[in-house]
Amino acid sequence: MPAFPTTRWSLIRASDRAAGDVGAAWGELVRDYRPAIVAYFRRGALARDAEDLAQEFLLRSIRESWWSRADPGVGGFRRFLYALLTRFAAQQRDAAHRRYEQGGADAFDAAGDATPERAFDLDFALCLTRGAWRTLGAEYDADGRGELFAALEPWLAEAPAHGELAALAARLGIAPNTLAVQLKRLRARFQKAVHAALTQLCVDDAQADADLAALRDALASDGAHA
């Protein structure tokens, strides 16, 4: 049994679910991570068709129930999705080869330095953190602290310039050092939310930690990407 009842990934991995439920869950999940799928194709051999390929991948994965290959041994969503992409891309390359041999256009113009895997990880991390941020915003709203959340958002990952926080504190009517503490707490909670979101896409803590390390690597080696 999954430890928490119905994350989409645990739903997909549970073999006894009705196919309709699972298909819907899969569709939502891959759409949430579409940017990572596009990024993968953009860094690959078929970069010019990246958007189209992503769309085709999405549709076929849903139509052909690719999630059903997510047997209990398969592990987390990130690796599973990556494995599907690799296989799909290989099939596309074979098809392109055949077109080339039949006199088609040059399909092998590699794009950029980043490997498809790294690009995929980068955008996967962005999808993940944006999702976690939205969840956190909803929590603040529920606590009646939506205004604080919105006000602090610009400084989530950036040190405020001198006087900026003081001005904001004055506007919100709270003490400046209190606002500083609130910002610290916001960051801590954001981290927690990201970890929670990733954990929900993994089978266990060890795998979540491994995924986290991989995402950290990808982000560290490509600071310019945004």
Partner: peptide, 22 residues
């Protein structure tokens, strides 16, 4: 606007200990 790459870096960083935060 939020720098999402930086935010993502923060997000995936080894998280602060709750106890340390308190």
């Amino acid at each position: 606007m939020t720098d999402w790459a930086a935010a993502a870096k923060l997000g995936v960083a080894a998280h602060d200990d709750v106890a340390a935060q308190l």
